[in-house]
Design a protein around this nucleic acid. Structure first.
Lengths: 347, 347
DNA sequence: CTCTAGAATGAACACGTTCACAAAAATTCT
DNA sequence: AGAATTTTTGTGAACGTGTTCATTCTAGAG
């Protein structure tokens, strides 16, 4: 018998019963101690804790999940990630940082789902759905307008929240976003206020809700000021430096006196073209970006832009999601966080 | 009875037994079908599959994990993340992309552990250790020289791999990294080859193995060329643009004719200072960075630098880790990936 | 037809936890 | 002191899967 024990090289991990035996109590008492439940005498609690620490016991999470139906894990899905992440490299880390803040507070773990290329998107969806039992809820970090994922999630009845305004079913879905429309509107109003009249825009990606909303705000502000909307003053971009450069190239013939770019990278590209052809910023053309990336302060002139509380957005989404999971939320919630206009030298 | 069933709003999910009943077979047959095991007749397999698809059954992963002792999940831990991630924003996304590639291929999920601030580091370690049963293995994305985490991981006997050269126990620990020492050495040799003699360096963070190794390579190259090492030509930085600016400020009195920066951000900072005081690059001072970040091509002059295959590094680490998990690896493996010198206008 | 090897299937157990309930012990009240 | 209450502890039944082993079925050989 002793030999058999000694030969047993790959020892199985300790379980509740082992700890109970060593502490001279029953399995459920140990369970109560671990889960901080009442109705355990202080003396017993101490003794059990001592054994747990000494033996280095950690609970088997799979067994716990099996009976509680809870995993203490949330998923983060970012299906069409590649280009966007590399165009605005601060967005994703900021997002994750906010999520980490929320999950750390509430003791959740984070399962990350993202693609290494565009073609994998479909496969990723399938994997997420197949593994959905591992997650109590899901943060959808980027939904395309034609994304079938959301419908699947609704069908599976898994709690989820978006960090953008959803492209479909907006009343049914919870989300936390920034008020892109209002931010764009106020920034255009500001440009009008400082006397600009031929205000062009290089949009963000228009299969993306953020990009669409910023364009909408642009139009609304012009309308409010009684300036006719001119499609020739709109160049379609996709959040990249290159698209800013090309967009500016396309717009220059229209002689704009101001350009509102879809984000700071785009503004940076536009600036590069303006520099090349000798146009002065802000004297000839005022330039405004979006997101307040670090690049905004690194270029000359420093860039007027809109600061979005990305990390805070993600944090809010995370805590809301956990509330949903815990059943503390009955109806879907929609939150729009305010942005801040940062005026620098480019306007 | 029927009413009771109908009233049961929150229906429990389907399990193997349900599928078995609907298909007219036993639970173990369904299990065999799902896990692609032999000894199931083709006819039975078809019938079971049809039921599974129709009912939309997915296995309960917790139950499976409980019996197989496998989770199909790997963890990624980046404990002291904040400053570093924001100084080199491309590093972390590239890393995750490589990991995503590896996990996607082998059908693993990724559990992400990182801090939202420095103070959380200790807490994060504890959480990772407490949750370690959820992971088959761990990728350690950034280990400080004084990090106690590695010892804990060894003690717990959990498979793990580093994506840097480990600060301790180098023979015992598997890792995939780039050959920082050799890269730095060859880049200095190149500078010597083009006639530079007073070669200064602004180091990376020196509590980081990458930073230390790059400095070591610098020293070795000088030694090999018979140039005496001069501590006054070394400024300590920490991978940031600001530290590059300040480092250059500190070094300028030494009249260097070349500067090797700890990374491209640092080089960028150095360039800003050189521009301010009217020094020409590369005529007066040659400048070299590390990492080939996008900024290297955005500044004027474009930056000579070293391209590191970060994504490939992470991919390799991921597949090796999964090999470890599957027991396909007996001894620890150490892999150093080659780097590439990218010569541009700054030298 | 019988016999046999091998393929196909099912019954029962194990995994480690939580939870509901029962039992025992301690405390308070009359 | 004895009853009533409250605190503390233990027992047994889930949770849903994989796995072992015994049993049944099938096809082919004699």
């Amino acid at each position: 018998m002793i030999e058999k024990e000694a030969l047993n090289i790959t020892r199985r991990a300790l379980n509740l019963e082992d700890i109970a035996a060593k502490a001279g109590v029953s399995r459920s008492t140990v369970s109560r101690v671990i889960n901080d439940e009442p109705y355990v005498s202080e003396r017993t609690r101490q003794r059990v804790m001592a054994v747990i620490d000494r033996e280095g016991y950690t609970p088997n999470l799979a067994a716990r999940q099996l009976v509680t139906q809870r995993t203490q894990v949330i998923g983060v899905i970012h299906p069409h990630v590649v280009s966007q992440v590399f165009e605005n490299p601060y967005y994703f880390p900021s997002l994750l940082q906010g999520i980490a803040e929320g999950t750390s507070e509430r003791d959740y773990a984070t399962l990350l789902w993202w693609c290494h290329n565009q073609a994998e998107e479909e496969r990723l969806h399938r994997r997420v759905l197949r593994y959905h039992r591992m997650m109590d809820g899901l943060i959808v970090a980027s939904a395309r307008t034609d994304d079938p994922l959301l419908k699947h999630l609704v069908r599976l009845n898994i709690p989820f929240i978006l960090v953008e305004r959803p492209p479909i079913m907006q009343d049914m879905i919870s989300y936390v976003s920034i008020d892109n429309i209002d931010a764009a509107r106020s920034v255009i109003a500001y440009l009008i206020g400082i006397g600009r009249r031929r205000i062009a825009t290089i949009t963000g990606a228009l299969n993306n809700v953020d990009g669409i909303d910023r364009l909408t705000g642009y139009k609304l502000a012009l309308e409010a000021a009684g300036i006719a909307f001119d499609p020739k003053l709109v160049a379609e971009g996709h959040f990249s430096t290159l698209s800013g450069y090309q967009g500016m190239q396309q717009l220059i013939d229209q002689r704009p006196d101001a350009v509102f770019a879809g984000n700071d990278s785009t503004a940076h590209g536009a600036l590069q073209y303006l520099n090349e052809i000798g146009m002065r910023v802000p004297d000839d053309v005022a330039l405004i970006g979006f997101d307040d990336m670090p690049i905004a302060q690194q270029i000359t002139p420093t860039l007027t832009t809109i600061r979005a509380p990305i990390q805070h957005k993600a944090y809010t989404a995370t805590t809301l999601l956990i509330d949903m999971i815990n059943g503390d939320m009955t109806a879907p919630r929609q939150v729009l966080l305010p942005t801040q206009l940062i005026i620098r030298d480019s306007t």
